[in-house]
Amino acid sequence: TEIRININGVTIHVRDASEELKKLIEHLLRLGADEKEIREVLHRWEK
C-alpha cells in the first residue's frame, strides 16, 4: 500500500506501507506528531 501524509504543507510519501504502519501513523497524527517525529518513526520502522 502506498500512502502520502501531508503535515503542514510537507508531504511524506511512503511506499509499501503495511496496514499496521498506516494505523500507527494515523494514531501518531491524532496525537499531534509533527513531520520530524513521523519521519523518525518511519526511519526506525524500515530497519
Rank of each mutant, 00 (worst) to 15 (best):
N8D: 10
E2G: 06
E40M: 06
G9P: 02
V41R: 05
L31A: 15
N8M: 04
H27T: 15
V14I: 12
I12C: 02
R15H: 15
L42E: 01
K23Q: 15
E19F: 07
N8T: 05
R44P: 03
I3Q: 04
H43T: 09
L29S: 05
A17C: 04
I25Q: 00
G9Q: 08
E26H: 10
K36R: 10
R44G: 14
R30L: 15
T1M: 11
R15S: 09
S18F: 04
V14E: 02
H13D: 08
N6A: 11
V41I: 09
L42H: 01
K22A: 14
R4C: 07
L21H: 01
I12M: 01
H27M: 11
V41S: 07
E20I: 06
E26K: 07
T11E: 10
I3L: 09
T11G: 11
G32D: 03
L28C: 06
G32N: 06
I12Y: 00
G32Y: 01
T11R: 07
R44V: 10
V10Y: 00
E37K: 13
I7T: 06
L28E: 03
K47P: 11
G9N: 13
E37I: 12
T1N: 12
G9I: 03
L31D: 08
L21K: 03
R44W: 14
N8H: 11
R4F: 13
L21A: 02
I7K: 04
E37H: 14
E26W: 04
E37S: 13
W45P: 03
K36D: 11
I12F: 00
S18M: 05
L31M: 15
L28N: 03
I5N: 02
L24Q: 14
I3S: 04
E37G: 08
R15M: 15
K36N: 10
T11K: 09
I3E: 05
H43L: 07
R39G: 04
A33I: 07
K36M: 14
R30F: 15
I38F: 06
K36H: 11
L24T: 14
N6H: 15
D16L: 05
A33C: 07
I3K: 03
G9L: 06
W45D: 06
L42S: 01
R30D: 13
D16T: 07
K47D: 14
H13S: 13
H13G: 05
V14T: 03
L42I: 14
L29A: 08
I38L: 08
T1Y: 06
N8F: 01
A17S: 06
L29V: 11
H13A: 07
L31K: 13
W45K: 02
H13N: 09
T1K: 09
I3W: 01
E40A: 07
K22G: 08
S18R: 05
G9E: 07
R39I: 09
K22P: 01
R4D: 09
